[in-house]
Simulated scan of single mutants.
Amino acid sequence: MAIRVQKIINSTNAQKAKAALIFRLPEEPENDWQRLLEEIAENDNVTLAYRDDGGVQIFWVVPKED
């Protein structure tokens, strides 16, 4: 599950948009999914938006280096 989500986040389109839309697959345990989302949310400059359709939109900002 983590590898699948990582591939989505690292895709060219997601990197350009600085956003990705992820969904939990039916065979993925709910508690593992929640733990993964918590770990993603812990990162600085990352925002999670929970959608009505069950998806989670991830947005991130790349800070400018001084």
Score class of each variant (00 low, 15 high):
33 W>H: 11
39 E>A: 12
57 Q>E: 15
29 P>F: 07
56 V>K: 05
29 P>R: 13
36 L>M: 15
8 I>Q: 00
17 A>W: 01
42 E>G: 12
48 L>D: 11
62 V>Q: 09
3 I>Y: 06
66 D>A: 08
28 E>C: 06
46 V>A: 06
55 G>A: 14
25 L>W: 09
6 Q>I: 05
2 A>R: 11
14 A>C: 11
42 E>C: 09
25 L>N: 14
40 I>Y: 07
51 R>H: 09
46 V>M: 08
33 W>G: 05
65 E>A: 06
14 A>W: 00
12 T>H: 07
58 I>F: 02
45 N>T: 04
13 N>S: 11
9 I>V: 14
14 A>V: 01
14 A>S: 15
22 I>A: 03
18 K>Y: 03
55 G>W: 04
48 L>K: 09
9 I>P: 00
18 K>P: 00
25 L>T: 15
58 I>L: 11
20 A>M: 06
19 A>E: 13
17 A>L: 12
45 N>R: 09
39 E>L: 12
48 L>Y: 12
49 A>P: 00
38 E>D: 14
5 V>I: 13
14 A>D: 03
32 D>V: 10
25 L>M: 13
46 V>Y: 07
58 I>M: 02
1 M>T: 05
51 R>I: 02
36 L>S: 09
28 E>S: 07
62 V>M: 04
57 Q>F: 04
25 L>C: 08
66 D>W: 03
42 E>Q: 13
2 A>W: 12
12 T>L: 06
21 L>V: 11
58 I>R: 01
36 L>F: 13
57 Q>T: 07
43 N>F: 07
63 P>S: 02
41 A>K: 15
34 Q>A: 12
52 D>H: 06
13 N>L: 06
8 I>M: 01
46 V>D: 08
20 A>V: 02
10 N>D: 13
55 G>E: 04
14 A>H: 02
